[in-house]
Simulated assay, not measured.
Amino acid sequence: MTAAPLIPIVDSADRHLAEVRLNSQEILRGHFLHAFRDQVRMPDQRTASREYVVHPGAVMVIPLLEQADGSVRLVLERQYRYPMGQVMTEFPAGKLDPGEDPFLCAQRELKEETGYTAKEWARAGVLHPVISYSTEFIEIWFARGLTAGQRRLDAGEFLDVITATTEELMLWCMTGQVTDAKTLAGAFWLQNTHGQAPSWPLVWKKSHTAA
């Protein structure tokens, strides 16, 4: 499979850093991953090989579970990740289906994996977790006004749902108990939206499925 030459998506001031795809070879089409090996022209006009994975994109949800005393706990998951060979602590997340709206995906993944639905949602931003070898992006969403319900895990999906305070999550990040990149990014957003001196505003909107 040969793809059309890639037009760099860069500002004109950065054009001197861009690489241009000359040709592309498909090297793997799996159930989930799609890998390519491209030949590119570098800024000095020499050529080089670039191998990368095309990813459909994903969402991550930071669920805020309000307590009766006014405090908030975070909903997290513990799941065995085969490439790492260990159980990882992370925020709920999942990949986008073809053509799926990220907001709807966030609502679907939260319900399927944790059983919770949320009354209000706020899009925080986007992260690119592995920019050196993948097109993957992850949209970060906050959810609040949670209501517990039944999970609907996919076949072959096994995970535990836990809750933690923000302070506990920060400690786990500091000590290396949490090393998942998207969850570390989520902790960074938490510090700036719900920390002692929040400076990053969130714009909340109602769930599509809320009454």
Rank of each mutant, 00 (worst) to 15 (best):
3 A>L: 15
6 L>A: 08
8 P>Q: 08
15 R>V: 12
15 R>E: 15
18 A>L: 07
22 L>E: 10
27 I>N: 04
30 G>C: 09
32 F>M: 06
33 L>R: 09
35 A>S: 13
43 P>E: 06
47 T>F: 05
49 S>M: 14
51 E>F: 01
60 M>C: 01
63 P>D: 02
63 P>R: 00
64 L>V: 04
66 E>C: 07
66 E>W: 06
71 S>Q: 12
73 R>D: 14
73 R>I: 03
75 V>E: 02
90 E>A: 05
96 L>R: 02
102 P>C: 07
102 P>R: 05
104 L>P: 00
105 C>Q: 00
105 C>N: 02
109 E>Q: 10
111 K>Y: 08
112 E>N: 14
115 G>V: 04
115 G>H: 04
116 Y>P: 00
119 K>A: 15
119 K>S: 15
119 K>Q: 15
119 K>L: 10
129 P>C: 07
131 I>D: 03
131 I>V: 14
134 S>A: 15
136 E>L: 08
138 I>V: 15
138 I>Q: 03
142 F>E: 01
150 Q>Y: 09
154 D>Q: 14
156 G>M: 05
159 L>M: 09
163 T>C: 09
165 T>L: 10
171 L>M: 07
172 W>V: 00
184 L>G: 00
187 A>G: 15
188 F>L: 09
190 L>W: 01
195 G>K: 02
204 W>A: 03
